[in-house]
Amino acid sequence: MKSYEEMAQSVLCRARAERAVRRRKRNCIAVVLACVCCAVLTVTAGVGALSRGEVTLRGTKPSEIVENPVTQPTDTTSNNIYQDSPEVTLLHCIGDTEVVQMREGIRVPYRALVRVRDITGVDDKEFAAVLEQEQACIDELFSEYPRDALNSWGRYRGENVLITTISAGGFRLRLEKASAVRGISVSVTEMGYMVLVPELENGCGSASGKRSIDLDRAAIRGICGDAAGEIDFLWSISPKAAQIIKSNPSVKLSELRDTVTVTVTYEDGGEETLIVDMLVSDSGEIFAVHRGTMMDA
């Protein structure tokens, strides 16, 4: 049996230990409460900022792209009207009357951008002059962005066109090489670009001799060439999507969103799958964004 001194010592020690444990518990609870309060405040502030339009969420809806009207740029040094939005990038193409929308959140400085080529209506000299004028910006693009950072379908002077970045290393499209494809009027330019060929029919087949191209029965296709002027592969939009566009040119953007898969088959048996998101705006314009690798490195 304990003496009273032993019992007193035991009681006092246990009391101290118990108090320490309770203090720790209280501290832990205080920290947890502080964290919860902080999280609630952060979320509240975030939602508030979102509702005030100070913040843009990632993953812009296609309909939002259309809702932002495309304006004609007057300041050619700052053409991206969505400078502060990482999600929607509006790019100005060559010429002064058409603007092409792009999405997928890649911000591209103005003029370090894509080339758009009207199949039939653009004068080659005019086009070459624009290219020359923007050469510095193109060089800047090459240093900052990876190859094939941007690709998009657009509409230029009444024609559907495919927009693409110009790949590093002087990627060059020789449209002459594409002349085998019916309906394309081609010319050589200094920089490569891609052209959408409206209503292109089947029958392209292998163009470069290096690769065979897996063509599905697309109603709309694009064509792309390399620096040597050889066609690398053709783009295609799924027949379903093309059918919708043809039957209803004013289809709403929100109503049509199709992912197109293009399979490129190489001579050595290898394959490359390319993914393109295609959208049609309310006015019937086609927008597409290339999500896969356009060219093998």
Binding site: M1, K2, M7, A8, S10, V11, L12, R14, A15, R19
Partner: peptide, 14 residues
């Protein structure tokens, strides 16, 4: 009984 007595005093202390 001794443990309970100690608990009684502990209750006072805590």
């Amino acid at each position: 009984a001794e443990d309970l007595a100690e608990e009684t005093f502990l209750k006072l202390a805590l």
